[in-house]
Design a protein around this nucleic acid. Sequence first.
DNA 1: CAGTGGTCTAGACCACACT
DNA 2: GTGTGGTCTAGACCACTGC
Lengths: 263, 263
Amino acid sequence: MAQTPSSSNDNALAQLGAQEQATPAFSPLYQQIKVLILQSLQSGEWKPGEAIPSEIDLAARFRVSQGTVRKAIDELAAENLVVRRQGKGTFVATHSEQHVQYRFLKLMPDSGNQDTDGPAQRSVLECKRVRATADIARALALRSGDPVVQVRRTLSFGGVPTILEDLWLPGNAFKGITADQMAGYQGPTYAMFEVEFGVRMVRAEEKIRAVAADAQQALLLNVEHASPLLSVERIAYTYNDVPMELRRGLYRTDTHHYRNDLS
Amino acid sequence: MAQTPSSSNDNALAQLGAQEQATPAFSPLYQQIKVLILQSLQSGEWKPGEAIPSEIDLAARFRVSQGTVRKAIDELAAENLVVRRQGKGTFVATHSEQHVQYRFLKLMPDSGNQDTDGPAQRSVLECKRVRATADIARALALRSGDPVVQVRRTLSFGGVPTILEDLWLPGNAFKGITADQMAGYQGPTYAMFEVEFGVRMVRAEEKIRAVAADAQQALLLNVEHASPLLSVERIAYTYNDVPMELRRGLYRTDTHHYRNDLS
DNA sequence: CAGTGGTCTAGACCACACT
DNA sequence: GTGTGGTCTAGACCACTGC
């Protein structure tokens, strides 16, 4: 069945409603399957860390061959939304036990392997509810004046304050978040977001600049006034490209560097 | 045939010589095919921009099914070594016509789309043969004192000098390179390397820091002394992870930013 | 052992580009 | 039309995990 992916099928696929595309919105079967799996991920049918149904089960459920399901899952795995483990199953990706923790943090110690200067010590300086300014609203796809949570914190490695950052989170999704929550959770902050608020970050964009430390920043990071710092502005997205966090960080790069692989 | 990829076959595959791996050095058929295609790419059997044989031809040549060749090529395409074009064929990737030119340059203008401030104006300040210092030798996998070519240049956008960078190239591979060549070539420098020296860069690693401009750098980039600049150290690799260029750049980030997508 | 993902095959048909 | 890559299927077998 379903040899002609553009025609309607007798299964649950048919053709997804025509999006606002000029083209006839054709997509191959495996892409449609991918969308369906994605919807189940978003809806929370399978939670981070859990196994999703086996390829055979999914093939039966969607009435397609195992190979088609496989190709859909392959793409989800390539996008880090899902992790395959031979002999065990396919699991919803999570920032918790994902053996590479701090997946989005590209700051590495100059010497020594990976981030083996251990987990960062967090220090939350501030956690308050504010109203979104114009630029913050734009970044988070909100309206000016909408409630947001603003967090200011530092991260230290081996006792040395290395990162100073401000976070802005949509107030609706992060109702009731506290400084204690931000500081006390063991493990990555994004893992806490998954557990406490059901928000899973799947990708992010960063804009990086070199800036000079102002007086307050210099104090908090224990550097000279006007020292050069790496400014990292990040917008993190959940499923469906919905922005859920704006983060403005200042990194000391005297003992660490920002690492990037190009290909 | 070849149902048991770990056993020897009657084709040209057998098992590639046991590398220095503790494991029995098993690899699936499609990986072996991938290595064979890779070797043909390195050897120059197919040059950048040219089409490689069709999947059917390659399948016949290696005595495997088209699906196996397909999976090998899929991985090569994912690594940007090769570009697939439906209906036309599969082509060796190139920095020349690759519709995204400057693939490794992540500096974007703050406003305006992509790099539509046009191509950079190059200005070559220096191009000389020197001997590798210890750190440069290490980066390029050479010995201290080995001949290298050092190039210093600036890149300007809209007349504003924005990038100041030094390049170090292995002397052997880039014999006879001149300042005129560096300055005069139309298009990306890496495209020139392909055409003139047969060196194709396939991936790179960057280490990024914030630094303060010294007197000379400030002069060349037309900024205040001690202005914060983005320091970008890049090592670019050809096939087989052989380093072929060390580049130390200083980017002005007052009108541009370094963009990075995380996933 | 059964169940999972991973590999390989062979064949059919579709979408696209060129001639 | 011919040839290319792209999709889909069905079935066989391999490799790994855990009972």
